[in-house]
Design a protein around this nucleic acid. Sequence first.
DNA 1: ATTGTTATTATGTATAGACATTATATGTTG
DNA 2: CAACATATAATGTCTATACATAATAACAAT
Lengths: 233, 233
Amino acid sequence: MKLPKVRGHKDVAQIVRERIRTQCWMPGTLIPSEQNLASEFECSRGTVNRALRDLEASGVVARRKRAGTRVRMNPEGRATLDIPLIKESVKKGGDEYRFAILEQARMQPPAAVRGRMQAATASKMLHLRTLHLAGHQPYIYEDRWINLDVVPEIEKIDLSAISANEWLVRNKPLSKGDIFFTARAATDHDAEALQVTLGTALFVIDRITWADQNAITSVTMAHAPGFRLHTKI
Amino acid sequence: MKLPKVRGHKDVAQIVRERIRTQCWMPGTLIPSEQNLASEFECSRGTVNRALRDLEASGVVARRKRAGTRVRMNPEGRATLDIPLIKESVKKGGDEYRFAILEQARMQPPAAVRGRMQAATASKMLHLRTLHLAGHQPYIYEDRWINLDVVPEIEKIDLSAISANEWLVRNKPLSKGDIFFTARAATDHDAEALQVTLGTALFVIDRITWADQNAITSVTMAHAPGFRLHTKI
DNA sequence: ATTGTTATTATGTATAGACATTATATGTTG
DNA sequence: CAACATATAATGTCTATACATAATAACAAT
């Protein structure tokens, strides 16, 4: 086995990847210990450690103390997804971004939304229906509920100047959230906003954002036909 | 600012998260340098570095040499997606996993597939149409093309015993790939296999897998209604 | 054979120090 | 004022060493 010059942890990771790809180390088997690899590559154990930790993060190997480092059986299991900010992804397509609020009202949410957000029965919420546009084309139809028990301040904000999403991101940073990707047939609201026929297959992203145990906002974004999310592995 | 005892890089990361969440460090602003944080927390720069690199990996901060570490404006932009192995996700739902090959033929791919795979005009490929079942319910309808120029061996494999996907993962590990998530109306093949009416909105995952410059396989997986992909941020 | 104890070993992580890299700031010159 | 050169400060990384932690293996005792 010839050894190209190793300059750093990225080289180590690359060589290990290569050996896995060429079946030198088969899926499921143990690879040599950090010590051994360090001597082979003539670098410190720290460098090998960094390389193997990176490979673990990208799902290539699995590591356990004492048990060693194993080539994963299913190296395609993990992918990092960049969820585009609407504004950015529209601009990247070369179009101008705009949004229009179709409806804004303070009201009680339907039971389904309340359940999803695990909110008290009496919770008052702000309901927003927004259409996001790329140039003059409808791009995303957004249906959002904001829990006023958690963020009462937002009622005083002019949400036609700054989008609710942007305000929340700026003012409630680092909140946890759940994201769901689904497909659904266009409802009448979807159809009207996106100007498609009823029942058209739409790509939908649902997101619920939490501050501790309290749901801040629940949002459903129906994407115009043609939308697709991409990731590499 | 009271300082809980810092024992390691995870504690550092947690404190930084906390300060961002509580608006101590606002989105878009610089946070102190590694040196400063190291003195404040009474640990080495290496520990702070590790913590901040982890926070960068999870999309919380952005770092640039000389320019420092900034709180990201959009901390929700990145998510790690675990792409479920079909077999595993069915088993997790408590059902028995089976699959049935609906069609298997050696043939020339249509132009669309050839283009996607950037394959030579004369390429012969293996075409597979497979239905994956959870118990007795249709779960995923899979339409797959395998490039026989790249993996001729697969023609000799009994693909009713081991799924094509499983064979490829075991025998061509660590290949690169592109994954696309879309929604589409059920075609006649989809409808027949999944037992839904024509035009039903389906969640579709497209994947192309590469060995160097050559496409190994292109697969389209149409999921039965109700399917959803979940991730946390 | 089963259980409990101990030793071993691979990874996990912290430390201090050094040098590399690069974006920014500063100052100089035309 | 603008263009260019230089200094500076932050992150990026490698090194060597040390100790912590956890899973396995080896062995002993029941």
